[in-house]
């Protein structure tokens, strides 16, 4: 199996034939090993292992098992289809991502993130808005995993009734920023009714490093009703370039502020 992962194209056929000639249990073991290895490797090794899975009939079996009555089989099939990504995998995974079993939906959603097509991305965006169907951190992580550029429209999610979706949306937006991201994050920081969303928005503004974030961050640091938001906003301000924030930080460091806010505003000590 190890030779196969590093094999040159001309050696692969021979190695696959060797594995094919193994007894049924040994062959099954080889399949199990490659299944586990697939998630850990990339590039050529991944291609070689995927070829082995296809040649040994595991991929065809996965398509069949995607319709099995057993939820574990369906989840395993989803995992394999995501790892190998054969033709037709996206359609099967989209179906599995709406499965009746939550676990299957979760695995299929994660697998969709590996398939990298616009169809998959649209399904992931749909799933992201349905946290009862799939936890939004899984659909969100899958969106972040896709190699294709995702045009993540934060405005679509800021009015979502679930605070968890809004929390994850602001984090994703900061990792896939658009020109309007800073502005939208600032609005979210000042207007969202949920304090955890506001904390996430403050952290996100610290991450995107946009000047438009300074004003909402300063306002939140000074006047948000919740201390955790004031601290998060101050920490975010301290991460921005100092020419933008020096005035605000001088004020936030002053003794009249809450010690927790002062601590967040002061730079962490540096070594000698």
């Amino acid at each position: 199996m190890l030779s196969l992962t590093v094999a040159d194209p001309e050696e692969i056929e021979h190695l696959i034939d060797q594995i094919k000639s193994l007894r049924i249990f040994a062959r099954q073991q080889a399949l199990d090993i490659s299944f586990r290895m697939l998630a850990e490797v990339s590039g050529e090794s991944q291609r070689n292992l995927a070829l082995l899975m296809t040649e040994l009939g595991a991929v065809q079996k996965a398509f069949t098992r995607a319709r099995s009555k057993d939820s574990v089989r369906r989840a395993r099939a989803a995992e394999l289809l995501g790892l190998v990504n054969p033709v037709g995998a996206v359609d099967a995974l989209i179906t599995l991502s709406s499965d009746s079993n939550r676990e299957v939906r979760m695995v299929a959603t994660r697998a969709l993130g590996r398939t990298d097509t616009q169809l998959a991305i649209r399904q992931l965006e749909r799933l992201f808005q349905q946290p009862r169907s799939v936890p939004s951190w899984i659909s969100g992580s899958a969106l972040l995993d896709t190699a294709s550029p995702v045009d993540f429209e934060l405005s679509k999610y800021l009015g979502h009734p679930s605070p968890v979706v809004r929390q994850n949306a602001v984090t994703i937006a900061s990792l896939m920023p658009r020109s309007d991201t800073g502005l939208l994050l600032g609005r979210c920081l000042l207007d969202d009714p949920d304090r955890l969303v506001r904390v996430m928005a403050a952290r996100a503004l610290g991450r995107v490093q946009m000047r438009v974030g300074v004003e909402p961050l300063t306002t939140a640091a000074l006047s948000d009703p919740h201390k955790s938001v004031r601290i998060a906003a101050t920490q975010a301000l301290a991460q921005l370039p100092s020419p933008w924030t020096s005035d605000a930080l001088v004020y936030l460091k002053s003794p009249k502020m809450d010690p927790a806010v002062q601590r967040a505003a002061l730079p962490a000590p540096h070594g000698v």
Binding site: K227, D258, P259, A260, Q262, R263, L266, A268, P269, H270, G271, V272
Partner: peptide, 11 residues
């Protein structure tokens, strides 16, 4: 480690 003299809020 270095000494951190920043204030701490005792919530």
């Amino acid at each position: 480690l270095v000494n951190d003299t920043r204030p701490i809020a005792l919530t």
